[in-house]
Amino acid sequence: MATIVVGISDFKASQNSSDVLITYALGSCIAVVVYDPHARVGGMLHFMLPNASLDAVKARENPCMFADTGIPLLFKACYQLGAEKKRMIVKIAGGASILNDTDFFRIGQKNITAVRKIFWKNNVFIDKEDTGQNFNRTVSLGIADGRCTVKSAQGMAREL
């Protein structure tokens, strides 16, 4: 089994059934996990910020930093491996905040809103979601069966 780490502002796609994609300690960032059960192709994006309009130069250098430039890249990479949009299962996790942050930066919240908007505009349904609240999440995706687990500091890993 090969564990492939998805870093911050990074994505990985795979069709190798022995691969497990994993990203660690998501805070306000979000992991977008996609899987085509028919083609057995999966991918994971770990983005930091909602909109590439913040810094166009940076967005060209590293599109995975932002939701609106990273998500298309993730999908395209999966299509190239044989995945099809209509079969893709989409899950998202992350977007946490610090404790009682009513007026704090809300980057987590902004990220959640951005992802939902992008998928809604593109007629993609988000199948499962574990977002918000105030703890870190570690997310993994097994390419063999599309099993997606979320582990938080609160304890046990659970399937998403």
Partner: peptide, 15 residues
């Protein structure tokens, strides 16, 4: 918040 070098304490601090 951005998850750089976080430990078990994670986000458990008051904003």
């Amino acid at each position: 918040m951005t998850g750089i070098g976080v430990g078990e304490d994670g986000l458990a601090y008051r904003g």
